[in-house]
Write a protein that binds this DNA or RNA. Structure first.
Lengths: 339, 339
DNA sequence: AAGGAAATTGACAGCGCTGTCATTTATGTT
DNA sequence: AACATAAATGACAGCGCTGTCAATTTCCTT
């Protein structure tokens, strides 16, 4: 289990270490036959470059950072798994950072993180990807970063990789499903005000209602903060409206679970008395009873894409990489046609 | 935002870079006044050592790896948060690895991981910490590693840091709680056969039953694999026993949620007809309805401890570091006294 | 106060790689 | 075939730190 260095490969392939370096880094100006020879030698020795040495000598640290602020465990677990898988394939390492988007020193924290960890790029997840000040700061520094679910395009001058879901359309379709099922009074728990995705979801809801000629009624709309507890109080408000809604759309699963709790505590049956739908398709949505209707976003794949595009961007920054991921309506038993 | 190097600090403190290095690394043989001078200079310049350079020059990469195999998202999220926090404080980086403990090349995978990533130590989580072959391999190589929830001590010759919970006692106490509540027939869903913690939990259950003079009945014991789906079929077996148990202990929360599903699908009320208790205190246990009685393990703190002890061990390996973490019974509404 | 041991400090090489620039080799042109 | 030009390769310095070992200073003895 001895460490193989670039010198070993160079010796075996009978070239200089610089040429091996060129091949490893996919640099141009290497004859095809030479490249083959080097590749073969590397394979034979099972050579793997020393990341520390690369980081020291070059500018690229082969490290990317995934930064988050208080996400749900399953969102984080899925996203990071995706990022990790892609990193591994590309010879990159991933480091995790937890940042507090509320703190005033967010920018300073980020700078420190970049300096200390020597990451070559950052993947920002909501609500950090929503923080225009932060994003602009990175843009200004010309620091590579990918944004997951950032605010609608155009609002920012950012032009690096962006991974998003058509939140508006997803909610539009899900709301339509409820309307088609006969529901006329559909409550809505908004997402965290700092998450732009929450706003887009709300717009989708309003659009669907408008398209069906239904009124948007503030009485059955409440502010949520993505936490279970915020879902509890939001639902209390909505269910105390008169007349009571027959369906309730929550912008994430945790709050939808809270809605089901509250309904059950009030003696209402789900879905008989109240249809509840969520957003995210976390494991919870399947484990709860009755299993919850929700919108699935391909979070792991979003991690793949984010890492892939970021790494490409690190090697050669080019603009306008915007990826829209597909969603899927998961109709389960917490929602039903109105009788 | 210029990079500060060790030379800057040395110049400001008017000492050689080697002395700065000594101070940074807490080496002995530095005069107190010198140490102060260096520390002050470092603070003033906001100096942070370059990890890549340290890794290249020395043997310690200041990187530790957290390896896991298919854990639940919230277990992973909590543990890694704990590890991360401690790493940050100690100037270490954390890398994550997903390994497949079923695959025959597990050892080879691990070696590759160690070589490629240059980690200085590994934290193994179940079921990897249960894999004696893997642990012995690391021991043989004299490679630093911490074990989270490994098999009972004594079965192994390992003598590095070990973080564990008294699983047997936790289940013993929880079972006692059920017995005190009047339950005489208590079903049990076993944990994954490859997790030794599952075995210890089962022993705790048997011990409590025996202590109360109750028989252990195979009819109401089923094998589970920690997944929701495995909980479904396990519960089906247990609830079809005659007479039906009045309480059901599941070795984790996901399976307990499945038990509640199955019970509800069968028209049984929880907790009126069946008390259900879980293990782990995942968010799910609180979000489900009715909120679930469960055993809380301080997973995040276990991450702290594991990282802390591992880092200490990397600097000076000394034996017999065994930490037993406290647990807590969380009595909620999925369990009730037998009427 | 001289001599020796112990504590403290520094000079210097080198970890494994990449960037720069010089050198060699292949290709095209007339 | 001689030359210009482009492509391919290599020599060498140096990234920021630690390990080794030698030089210096301090502290005890007597």
């Amino acid at each position: 289990m001895r460490k193989i260095t670039i010198d070993d490969v160079a010796a075996l392939a009978e070239v200089s270490i610089k040429t091996v370096s060129r091949v490893i880094n996919r640099e141009p100006n290497v004859r095809k036959t030479t490249r083959q020879k080097v590749l073969e030698a590397a394979r034979q020795l099972d050579y793997w470059p020393n990341v520390a040495a690369r980081g020291l000598a070059g500018k690229n640290s082969y490290l990317i950072g995934l930064v988050y602020d208080n996400p749900s465990p399953s969102y984080l677990a899925n996203l990071q798994t995706g990022v990790l898988e892609t990193c591994r394939e590309s010879g990159y390492g991933m480091v995790l950072y937890s940042l507090d988007s509320q703190k005033s020193n967010l920018i300073a924290q980020t700078d420190e993180l970049i300096i200390q960890s020597r990451v070559s790029g950052l993947i920002l997840t909501p609500p950090l990807s929503d923080n225009m000040e932060l994003v602009q700061h990175l843009v200004a520094q010309n620091f590579a970063h990918a944004l997951v679910s950032p605010p609608a395009f155009g609002e920012t001058k950012f032009d690096g990789p962006v991974i998003m879901l058509d939140d508006r359309l997803a909610v539009f379709e899900m709301t339509n499903y409820l309307i088609k099922a006969g529901h006329r009074r559909i409550g809505f728990i908004k997402g965290h005000p700092q998450h732009s995705a929450g706003l887009r979801r709300f717009i989708g809801y309003c659009d669907a209602l408008n398209a069906a000629g239904l009124a948007v009624d503030d009485q059955i709309i409440a502010q949520g903060y993505y936490s279970f507890d915020s879902g509890l109080s939001a639902t209390q408000k909505i269910l105390s409206a008169n007349p009571r809604p027959t369906a309730l759309f929550s912008t994430n699963d945790d709050m939808a679970a809270a809605a089901m709790h509250t309904a059950l505590d009030m003696g209402l049956k789900v879905p008989d008395d109240l249809s509840v739908v969520g957003f995210d398709d976390t494991p919870l949505s399947r484990y709860i009873w009755p299993p919850m209707t929700t919108v699935r976003q391909p979070i792991r794949d979003m991690g793949h894409k984010a890492a892939e595009k970021l790494i490409t961007y690190i090697h050669e920054p080019k603009k306008g990489q915007q990826i829209v991921m597909p969603f899927e309506l998961k109709i389960r038993s917490s929602s039903a046609p109105l009788i």
